[in-house]
Design a protein around this nucleic acid. Structure first.
Lengths: 192, 192
DNA sequence: CCCATGTGAGACATCAATGTCTCACTCTGG
DNA sequence: CCAGAGTGAGACATTGATGTCTCACATGGG
């Protein structure tokens, strides 16, 4: 019976499958279940045993993305120090998940009707909060809404991930590019 | 024979079909040919007579997007005045096409291997040029590459389009949100 | 050693979208 | 009025992905 916990044998490392799928779908969002299975080094049958179908897989990826976002939010300690530094820490912490985020970001565009995972609302709120704090502290300008800044952060993360993906940008510049543009914009600062 | 030009009769307004398709695919990028046809108010048969298949339709939309981008670039007169003003004019001019651009932007992510329309390279170059000019004029900072600023502009246009789409932002704020973030960033400016 | 569990490989039915075709209808121009 | 072009509706085959199933194999535990 082995009620001593599930993984009596290999259990094929569900986490590894998820990460492989994320890496593949980041590059080719229309990849087949067959391709996903091959990318993970398992057969389609086994993939199907773990995730009832493509929907289940995407939902699992969504949960993974949410978990990574929340981990990044925790690690960034958004309520400490200046809002700028908090945003810098956030982008640095969320960078490894940017590819997955980009996939989920575009994927969610066609979920319009259906209710989407409530986890995103919490994440949106936590990110919006740091921008709002920056505004209250007089650090950020007030003519750009926190909602827009949050959405823009998502967009820039996706753009950055794709730029790196296509080889037109270096991964090491990733956080700097995004943070500097998001916070400082393209204009030169006389001060500083 | 009517060799006096094509549209002897109705010709069903190919342009109208394209715009309907653009509007629909912007919201639901996986829409069926059937849905596209219904959205345009024509039958699937007629849609098929005009565009050999889904590929042909997407290519036509790509051409439309390129044409609108080029029109916007022309209208923005990027080589006149300050680079900042040029970018402002560009965003204002390109805004009506933002939804279509967002669709094509994500669509092109999965064309990775295949050669993509060379028109985009020209557009990339023209946009990059205005950022480069801003840098040479000492107006823009030089630690953000023109390639990244261009990519970021695309990303922000898509984010803005989706924000408006989801009702979380007002269409009238669209150009302001994007331009101000792209140029000035989130930080308050002591100067100005 | 042998059994049980989990796996890979592949056959198979299903389903949705696509592409093609036919046919009847409706216009417009002559 | 009539001929022809264009359209809508629908039937049909095709294709590709999906989901389900069976069976043989291997690997680890008792």
């Amino acid at each position: 019976m082995s009620h001593m916990g599930y993984r009596c044998l290999m259990a094929v490392d569900r986490d590894h499958v998820l990460r492989s799928a994320a890496a593949l779908l980041t590059r080719k969002s229309t990849a087949t279940m067959d391709e996903v299975a091959k990318a993970a080094g398992i057969s389609r049958a086994t993939l199907h045993r773990q995730f009832a179908g493509r929907d289940a897989l995407v939902r699992a990826l969504e949960s993974l993305g949410i978990a990574e976002c929340e981990a990044a939010l925790d690690a960034a300690r958004l309520d400490e120090g200046t809002a700028s530094d908090a945003v810098r820490r956030l982008v640095g912490a969320i960078e490894p998940a940017a590819g997955l985020l980009a996939f989920l970001y575009t994927e969610n565009q066609l979920f319009e009707g259906e209710e989407q995972n409530a986890g995103w609302a919490l994440i949106d709120e936590r990110i919006s909060a740091v921008f709002r704090r920056g505004q209250l502290d007089g650090e950020f300008r007030i003519d750009l809404t926190p909602a827009w800044l949050t959405e823009a952060l998502y967009g820039l993360l996706a753009s950055g991930a794709w730029l790196v993906q296509s080889g037109k940008g270096a991964p090491k510049d990733f956080p700097h590019m995004i943070v500097e543009l998001l916070l400082g914009g393209a204009l030169r600062r006389e001060e500083t």
